[in-house]
Design a protein around this nucleic acid. Structure first.
Lengths: 127, 127
DNA sequence: CTGTATCCAAAATGATACTG
DNA sequence: CAGTATCATTTTGGATACAG
């Protein structure tokens, strides 16, 4: 069955909302390189707080995109890994990251142009 | 020059943050089909408020992803269209929407499994 | 180390009203 | 029609402290 993303009640929206998370793409991207422990992940991705990373990982686990494995060491060690499903998503998602890397300059140029024009826009009138 | 998305200061993050917007993908997707007026867009995409759609469009315009053209009719008519740059992004982004549509069932199944297991998890102990 | 719980500040959103 | 402005509310996030 195919759902329509433009419909409000569509469950696909839920997935899209999930993807619409600053960190999901980055986490998934990192995990494609191999399993990683919590704090390692935290250090790799600059800017995530412990709280948010924790939440993100839990959601991803619930969605079946990553797995969480705890080793009964002291102190405990936890390894996160991407699932096959997660990997298919990540591949798609990485295309976005690549787009961003490739077109960042065009976007920044557009912003500069827009801002310059908007700046002089404040009706100075004819005098 | 290539930036590293994982670095906090990286400008690419800004783009990624932009994409990490619930509505951007949907708006862009709709505009690939042709220019569209404000309220039409609003009706097409269920769930957006006027305010949020307005903000979204303004950001997209600033980023050079869509153009805004006002016709001096009464009342005024405004048409939004996607730019070539926006189109390249949209193509990439649509892959995500397709992924969501394709894999929504797998994700929902994973969620159900996770929830079921988490539910019985509340230590009932041995007794 | 890997989290959860709590409190608080900041940001996003909805509803409403009003303008060109 | 196409917005902007404002306010109240909800969400979200960071900082901190603490537990297994």
């Amino acid at each position: 069955m195919i759902y329509d993303v433009y419909s409000e009640a569509c469950p696909t929206r839920l997935v899209l909302d999930r993807l619409a998370d600053k960190w999901v793409l980055l986490v998934l991207g990192r995990l494609t390189e191999g399993p990683m422990r919590f704090n390692h992940l935290r250090r790799e991705i600059e800017g995530v707080s412990q709280k948010v990373l924790s939440q993100t990982l839990k959601r991803l686990e619930r969605d079946g995109l990553v797995t969480r494995q705890a080793f009964p060491t002291v102190p405990v060690t936890v390894e996160y890994a991407i699932t096959p499903l997660g990997r298919t998503l990540s591949e798609t998602a990485q295309a976005l990251a690549r787009w961003a890397e490739t077109n960042i300059e065009a976007v920044m140029a557009a912003q500069a142009a827009y801002d310059a024009q908007a700046g002089g826009q404040t009706s100075r009138a004819t005098t």
